[in-house]
Nucleic acid binder design. Structure first.
Ligand SMILES: NC(=O)c1ccc[n+]([C@@H]2O[C@H](COP(=O)([O-])OP(=O)(O)OC[C@H]3O[C@@H](n4cnc5c(N)ncnc54)[C@H](O)[C@@H]3O)[C@@H](O)[C@H]2O)c1
Ligand SMILES: NC(=O)c1ccc[n+]([C@@H]2O[C@H](COP(=O)([O-])OP(=O)(O)OC[C@H]3O[C@@H](n4cnc5c(N)ncnc54)[C@H](O)[C@@H]3O)[C@@H](O)[C@H]2O)c1
Lengths: 214, 214
DNA sequence: CTGCGGTTGTGAAACGTTTCACAACAAATA
DNA sequence: TATTTGTTGTGAAACGTTTCACAACCGCAG
């Protein structure tokens, strides 16, 4: 898929996610083709950037015409690996965990929550959207025997490292963490952090340094 | 605060957020000073980066000794503008909105949710952590007469642009958006997006391109 | 008060990403 | 067929960020 031995930057991948969503909308609006110029305008990017990003993975457009919307959308889905479904487990079904379980878009996109863990006796055994909450003490064994590929961590910061150690021990290679803390994982485990406080802090900084044109 | 006419990059600000949290932990662990080397190690960054980031804002360390933990933490809080409290409004108290209202860390950090809007008749008038939910139809007037500085958008994507237009019309200059869509705002309004799907997609991409050492 | 180990602050080099600019091509029109 | 308009794909230039490397300095020991 990727042109051999070319390192793709994080920003490029993030923009592919953006293109993917934009193309879905364009399809709904019955566009058949889209130029890099128009796509860039819609997403506040530059046409050159759109073309360069795509060119890392192949040549999907037609000169003079632009890119075929549906085809490009599918191509990007393939590149991102979202043209399939992924088995996801959630650890910690509190405020944010519950919100994630109830979020239909993730399921629609192919991210299927198949296991939920918690250590609260009142929650263990309860049913969340058809999934029975397991005891967090069993994470290692339950994950090892499962087909889970991605684990979402939504437990308090203080216990997050402990949980993530278990998750890693169970052989999981991809983790999405909501605790505002830097988790330590081996090099072969992919870890992404979702840190809302950081975005609020960015807004705070922007407001404080307003005249400086950020 | 910022050295005159120097543009600070987004990455630098994000790292300041990281340092801030790290320093808080160090304080709890009774560290009095910390070297850029040690701080970098803890947060998987480089010592040079730590020093360069801080140097944009002044000179906070002592050669031979490192940085004073508490003092530096307070300095960074001042730079980020989080040494004060901010009045926040939330629009959409569904799954994710409720999670945010219940999240104590934001309040502790000084981000105080003071108003909540929704358009669901069953929710309007109800009480969430001491705040009565207002009718979303009144956003413009209610926000205009208020001291709200930051608005969090947690409504379905389809209505997010409409809501954000109201919010902008009310004179709000900082918005944190959870809807997975590119919102259009005037140049003088700061908009940050929290897009969880994007992080899941990044993990998916990483897993699919594993051998390529991402 | 000199020398040494340790660390900052910062210009300059190295590196990475974005933007530019244009050849190559597609379609439409005359 | 020739010409015009529009757009991609991509090397090369411009720009921005990270890393390097070292002078300047601190505290301490002798
Ligand atoms: N709520 C938010 O809006 C929000 C926003 C940003 C970040 N976060 C972060 O997300 C995480 C969860 O936040 P929350 O508000 O949902 O907290 P919460 O207290 O509502 O939920 C935490 C859940 O984890 C469970 N838990 C605790 N220890 C556990 C363990 N050892 N093993 C398994 N489960 C355990 C608890 O029983 C609870 O169900 C925290 O790290 C928080 O900082 C939350
Ligand atoms: N739930 C999640 O975990 C999650 C994760 C990522 C992103 N998001 C995004 O966050 C947003 C909210 O998601 P959710 O799961 O909380 O949805 P939800 O349906 O649970 O909540 C949406 C809330 O917005 C209210 N609302 C609808 N139209 C409104 C209007 N015109 N004015 C004011 N309020 C209105 C609804 O009454 C409801 O209370 C969506 O854009 C979603 O894509 C949610």
């Amino acid at each position: 898929m990727v042109k051999p031995q070319l390192r793709i930057s994080e920003s490029t991948i993030h923009r592919l996610s953006i293109y993917y969503r934009a193309l879905n909308r364009l399809e709904r609006e019955n566009y058949e083709t889209i130029s890099s110029k128009e796509l860039a305008k819609r997403e506040k990017l530059t046409p050159a950037q759109v073309r360069k990003d795509l060119s890392f993975f192949g040549s999907f457009g037609t000169r003079g015409l632009g890119y075929p919307v549906t085809e490009l959308r599918d191509k990007i889905a393939e590149i991102l690996g979202i043209n399939r479904s992924w088995s996801v487990a959630l650890v910690g079904v509190g405020n944010i965990g519950s919100a994630l379980v109830s979020y239909k878009e993730f399921q629609k996109q192919g991210f299927r929550i198949r296991k939920i863990f918690d250590n609260d006796q009142r929650k263990i055994g309860s049913n969340h959207k058809g999934i029975i909450v397991s005891d967090a003490d069993d994470i290692v064994t339950e994950l090892r025997d499962s087909k889970i590929e991605i684990v979402v961590i939504a437990v308090p910061s203080l216990v997050a490292q402990m949980i993530v150690d278990d998750v890693v021990r169970a052989g999981i290679k991809a983790i999405l963490n909501f605790a505002p803390i830097n988790l330590k994982v081996p090099d072969d485990v992919y870890l992404r952090n979702e840190n809302m406080a950081m975005e609020l802090e960015y807004l705070s900084f922007s407001l404080c340094n307003d005249e400086a044109q950020l």
